[in-house]
């Protein structure tokens, strides 16, 4: 059963001459229980895509079905409620609230859902135990190490039992040991049947996922399934090209990878496009006027 269905999704930023096309008619279907890595250089549209899937933003054109329900035209507050009930976020910079202790941070999504205090604490506490932070419940985020903070953030993302978990560069601010712990935690969560979307620059991390989507200039240029535990061909190419040292090297690696991919619109069917003009192309004309 597909949990995410994107159809001809486009996102345009700006007005007039400053218009940029961040996403160009993206089609993407993600099944329940998939662990998908989304790769691509900066400006390729990964973040925009994640914001759309995570319902922080609405597409300019196209339709988005989350769990079979069309959510592409909902109003801000309805989006907030769906985010609350169905999406879990894990950020690169952790984004725990500095004034709340770990337990309160994890329980926060439940506050907005209107769950009673006792139940909130119980649920949050159980999740903290699952990520191995039982003894850190009353610590403030600033008293945790990076890896611990990210584990707490993962617990927060799980607290509403969401349909999808969006992890945006979750290891970007972590050392390699903490990165491994966090990725293994995500991997465990995936094994329990959760759907996870992972945005990353780091080809190494693709060994935890079962599908890799490559993006470039607002389109999906390549989409492959890969056995868990292996780094897929294209990613390995990038790995072999450069000895990974810093994030900049990662970026260079991904760029090299993108160059290595022969043609851009590999996943597209140009004939279909020619057959029926989409709403987007109509509107692009409008914009050009």
């Amino acid at each position: 059963m597909p949990i995410i269905e994107l159809k001809e999704i486009s996102k345009i930023f700006g007005f007039g001459d400053a218009t940029t096309l961040a996403l160009d008619e993206i089609d993407l279907v993600i099944e329940k229980g998939e662990f998908v890595a989304i790769m691509g250089p900066s400006g390729s549209g990964k973040s925009t895509l994640m914001n759309l899937i995570g319902l922080l933003d609405r597409p300019t054109y196209g339709s988005y079905k989350l769990g079979g329900k069309d959510v592409s035209r909902l109003r801000t507050n309805q989006l907030a409620k769906i985010r609350r009930d169905r999406v879990g976020y894990v950020f690169q910079s952790f984004n725990l609230l500095p004034r709340l202790n770990v337990l309160e941070n994890v329980a926060l999504p439940l506050v907005y859902k209107g769950v009673g205090a006792n139940k909130r604490i119980k649920t949050a506490s159980a999740l903290l135990e699952r990520v191995g932070l039982s003894d850190r419940e009353y610590y403030l985020p600033k008293h945790l190490s990076g890896g611990q903070t990210q584990r707490a953030a993962i617990a927060r993302a799980l607290v509403n039992s969401p349909d999808i978990i969006i992890a945006d560069e979750p290891t970007g601010n972590l050392d390699s040991e903490s990165s491994r712990v966090v990725m293994e935690l995500l991997s465990d969560i995936h094994k329990l049947g959760n759907t996870i979307l992972l945005v990353t620059h780091n080809p190494e991390l693709t060994r935890y996922v079962n599908r890799v989507v490559y993006m470039h200039d607002g389109v999906i240029v390549h989409d492959e399934n890969t056995p868990i535990g292996e780094v897929p061909k294209l990613a390995r190419k990038a790995l072999n090209l450069f000895q990974r040292k810093t994030e900049e090297d990662d970026l260079a690696g991904v760029s090299a990878l993108m160059k290595a991919i022969p043609t851009k619109h590999t996943t597209k069917k140009p004939r279909a496009k020619a057959k029926k003009p989409t709403s987007r192309s109509k509107s692009m004309k409008r914009i050009k006027k």
């Binding site: 922080l56 985010r83 999406v87 907005y112 509403n160």
Partner: peptide
């Protein structure tokens, strides 16, 4: 601002 962003991301409505 960032706190507001976080709260919204995890599901706070404008009203909340």
């Amino acid at each position: 601002t960032r706190e507001i962003g976080i709260r919204k991301a995890i599901g706070a409505t404008n009203r909340q």
